[in-house]
Amino acid sequence: MGITTNYTKLTVTNQTDAAVEVFVTFAAKNSTNQCCPIPVSVDDFSFLEKVNSLRGKFILEKKKSQEFDPKGQCFSGNIGFYIEPQCPVPNASFHMGKTGTNIAEFTLNPQEPCFEAFDISCVNGVNCYMMMKVDKDLGWNYGPAKTPIDTIYNRGLQENKGNPGVYPVNCTDCIQLIGNPPCPSLPTGPAQTERICNVQRSERGGSVEVLLVTPQDM
């Protein structure tokens, strides 16, 4: 991907053999948020069709990519494929929410000294296989040991234990469920045994890529 700016961009890539609908949910403005009080919004990207004030969508053709350039502003939100993020959809196919939906979450270019971060959340289930990639040797790390990492991906619904950068199903606190399960009809976990669910760094620059893939790609 390479560093081309002193701030971080985001790219979405469809690595599958069919076009896909992509949903982008943006963080709201919040003056009390010291890291990202005025993030970019759906109105900042002309290629998005507006769903509501915090969500847009677009069609991404097969084997194509779409870049999001926040022009140095904080970019915080999530990416989902096929349908809007939600819990299981009765009588649906896998991609359309039979076992819920997973999303790629990220906060890029927050105000100093806040860290950039990303993860794949399977808290609300799994409806596709995602991968997230970043440039090597730019400070991205995870877990108590701050282990360097440049690629994360999710597996099936209950197959993410030990998988860095991934929140398992119904595990709102990574290592456990806090409060009521977001998707009561789904199982819980198995949870992570250590806090390995977030990838983060203090640096800026380069790109975070969210890829829709098939199991054969992982």
Rank of each mutant, 00 (worst) to 15 (best):
T101K: 04
N124D: 07
F81A: 12
N124F: 02
I152R: 12
E116A: 15
K136H: 13
R155F: 00
Y82P: 05
N154W: 10
V89M: 05
L108V: 01
I83M: 00
P148S: 11
M96Y: 06
T147I: 14
M96P: 00
Q158R: 01
C87D: 01
T151I: 12
G143Q: 09
Q86P: 04
D119A: 08
A145H: 08
P148W: 12
Y142M: 13
G97T: 03
V126M: 06
T101V: 05
L138I: 10
I120D: 11
T147W: 11
M131E: 14
G139Q: 12
L157R: 05
M131S: 14
P148M: 11
T151N: 07
P90G: 05
A92F: 06
I120R: 10
C122G: 03
V123Q: 04
P113K: 03
Y153C: 15
E112L: 09
I120W: 10
K133E: 12
C114T: 01
E84M: 08
F106R: 14
A117Q: 08
V123L: 02
M96R: 02
C128N: 13
M132W: 04
I103Q: 13
V134R: 09
I120A: 11
T151G: 08
I103L: 14
A145Q: 11
Q111K: 13
I152M: 12
D135Q: 12
F81P: 00
E112N: 10
P144T: 11
F118L: 15
G125P: 08
E112K: 12
A92R: 02
E116H: 15
G156R: 11
Y142V: 09
W140M: 06
G100N: 02
C114K: 02
Y82E: 03
A117I: 08
A117D: 04
P113N: 04
